[in-house]
């Protein structure tokens, strides 16, 4: 498959606001991304503007404040997707097509039950939530992440295990919690943990390196099959070295750390 044949649906509603940079990430790699409003997938748009999810190879849920996040982050967007698209979406995931949710997108995937999804592709009820940061406020800061996945997750095939990358974080609700006291252990057993927040030495160090207080510094997880990824930090904001926060102190390559995630997606789709 040629890169330009990889069709990416960058899904948005009102308040989705990281669609441009998410679009750019795929564009830079030569793919064919499209910004699609949910109304275009569920028959609410004029005919010429209507689209179908099954025509896409990748689904990306960008960051933002979908519908304002006035209830629980991601809850409204998730409810709208669930009522309009759950059959299409379940099929999409079961076909092992990649689904990535960044920041608000991660919150939506959890609300949708696509993560952590221990029992089935899409749990009927959310089994976890991204809770208010320990600091009780929005935190915009660069975060260092260690790839802790042992090989299950398709989104990190281009990042060696144990390597530390920088993706910036910017959220008020990023602490992954569940009623299940063994959440982290189960994730770990299934190789569903993808990224942990670490310090500049690659060690888990708590706040501010972990900006939200997420248990065991978990920053991003995938589903058991490894084709749905949700993470709070923003790889699409680190496509170029020159948007890294400390690039003026020296750098080895012009590519930003975040691009590896999107390269991994492209590798998977192109086979």
């Amino acid at each position: 498959m040629r890169p330009e044949d990889v069709k990416v649906c960058v899904l948005r509603i009102e308040g989705t606001n990281c669609e441009d940079e998410t679009f750019n990430a795929f564009k830079i790699l030569g793919a064919d991304p499209e910004k699609v409003h949910l109304n275009q997938l569920d028959g609410h748009a004029p005919e010429l503007m209507q689209r179908s999810l099954e025509d896409y190879d990748v689904l990306a849920l960008p960051g933002g404040f979908s519908a304002g996040d006035y209830i629980r982050a991601g809850a409204i967007f998730a409810a709208r997707i669930r009522s309009a698209l759950s059959v299409d979406l379940t099929r999409f995931v079961e076909q092992e097509k990649p689904v990535i949710g960044i920041c608000n997108g991660f919150q939506i995937l959890v609300e949708l039950g696509l993560l952590p999804a221990f029992e089935e592709t899409m749990s009927p009820m959310p089994t976890a939530a991204l809770f208010t940061n320990d600091s009780a406020r929005f935190e915009c800061r660069p975060t260092l992440l260690r790839n802790d996945n042992r090989g299950n997750c398709l989104f990190t095939s281009r990042i060696p295990k144990g390597e530390v990358v920088m993706f910036p974080s910017a959220h008020a609700e990023g602490k992954l919690l569940s009623m299940d006291p063994d959440l982290v252990e189960r994730l770990d057993d299934n190789d569903q943990i993808v990224f942990r927040y670490v310090d500049q030495d690659g060690e888990q160090s708590g706040y501010p390196w972990n900006p939200n207080g997420s248990p065991d510094d978990v920053a991003g997880i995938c589903n058991p099959a490894g084709n749905v990824l949700g993470l709070m930090p923003h790889p699409e904001r680190a496509l170029s070295r020159f948007t890294h926060p400390d690039w003026t102190r020296g750098y080895e390559k012009e590519e930003g750390d975040g691009l590896a995630v999107f390269r991994s997606i492209m590798d998977h789709v192109r086979g």
Partner: peptide, 14 residues
């Protein structure tokens, strides 16, 4: 400053 998102749009250099 940390309460304001100064990174969104992914184009912030300094």
């Amino acid at each position: 400053i940390r309460q304001y998102d100064h990174e969104v749009r992914g184009a912030t250099v300094l």
